[in-house]
Amino acid sequence: MGEMTTGGAGTTIQVLEGSETGFATTRFDALLNWARKYSLFQYPFITACCAMEFMAMASPRFDMARFGAEAPRFSPRQADLLWVVGTISQRQAPALKRIYEQMADPKYVFAFGTCASCGGFYDNYTTLAGIDKVIPVDVYVPGCPPRPEAVIDGLLLLQDKIARGDRTPAIVKPRRDPIVQAGNLVRLGKKSTAT
């Protein structure tokens, strides 16, 4: 056990090293939430083109498994994170609601893409204007489809919310594009006047 003496008062702080045993104190729900946030068993409810981004997220390049959201479960009863990826039509809404009801608590819902968040540009007779009309949503990720980076942001946001025990809906905000920020954005239709 290493010892460290601070100041002249003679107080010593004992620091545990890796090979030694000891204990740490925390709140029970914090421990539980810490365990939950790294073991998200996901149920992908994939209906539309956002599925391509979901595949990119799940495959090694962006690698969702880094954040503990590794194993997709194809039964809602074994899952605790519902990914709704794509447009939900009015006809699918009862199925989605039933799947949500079958999931065991604690359960989280991830609205992937603009269509799942608010219906997108499908403002018509057949499309559900956002899955939050039917089931509560924890994280919205806008984008058509969202970049995998935005989805990772959403996943980390969800983990943060789980750790804090916060169930209010959250939105992934757009990141400032460094190219736009630098004023180097190429504008179409404007020719250079430097000739």
């Binding site: 219906g119 204007a129 939105i171």
Partner: peptide
Amino acid sequence: QPLVELRNVPDKLPPFGIDEG
């Protein structure tokens, strides 16, 4: 013509108001 009753969430986040779409 929804098949399931739509939820009414009074305190929704600003981008998703009652008239989204």
